[in-house]
């Protein structure tokens, strides 16, 4: 049952990554690898969060690092810069709900501005959601970029000798 949960999590993350990625028009040859990376990343974040009880920020960092590392061999294979593979793969992990709740609490704070208790609650919620969404986003970007920093030269020559132009 646990295995099934993990697989379905990865599967839905893969569909989400391909779908949201397709808005930004990646090359068709990149789609399978985007799916694999997204599934691996999201499933590992799911495992870290549910089974090891790690918080969403650290789990996102680890998952993004996995995605970033995976995009090195895949990028070399399909002659795509790493970002073309890992940005779509990261999209299902972008903290959309937290970001939305940040702004929503801000709007609700204006609505309740005259009531001191409720206004405070919404302001607190805004800071909470804003902190989580910014940190997760930051960790996603950092985690996926670390491989670039580690392999400076290799990471920047993914498209060298591309047979697709």
């Amino acid at each position: 049952m646990i295995i099934l949960d993990i697989i379905s999590d990865g599967l839905f993350a893969a569909v989400a990554a391909m779908g949201f990625g397709s808005i930004s028009g990646p090359p068709l040859r990149a789609f399978p690898y985007i799916a694999i990376l997204a599934a691996a990343g999201h499933a590992s974040r799911y495992c870290l969060m549910t089974f090891l009880g790690i918080d969403i920020v650290s789990a996102s960092l680890v998952a993004a690092f996995i995605i970033g590392c995976g995009s090195v061999p895949f990028g070399k294979k399909v002659f795509c810069p790493m970002t073309v593979l890992y940005i779509p793969a990261l999209l299902p992990m972008v903290p959309g709900t937290y970001a939305y709740k940040t702004v929503f609490s801000l709007i609700m704070f204006f609505q309740e501005i005259s009531s001191p208790t409720k206004g405070n609650e919404y302001l607190q919620e805004m800071i909470f959601n804003g902190a989580v969404s910014f940190s997760v986003l930051f960790m996603l970007a950092v985690g996926a970029t670390v491989p670039v920093f580690l392999l400076r030269e290799r990471a920047n020559s993914m498209t060298r000798g591309s047979k697709f132009i």
Partner: peptide, 20 residues
Amino acid sequence: FPISFEWNADLSALSWAAHD
């Protein structure tokens, strides 16, 4: 332009092709 990863990949490859 709308975001295009395809241009990202292709134009990067073009710079390497011009170089090599």
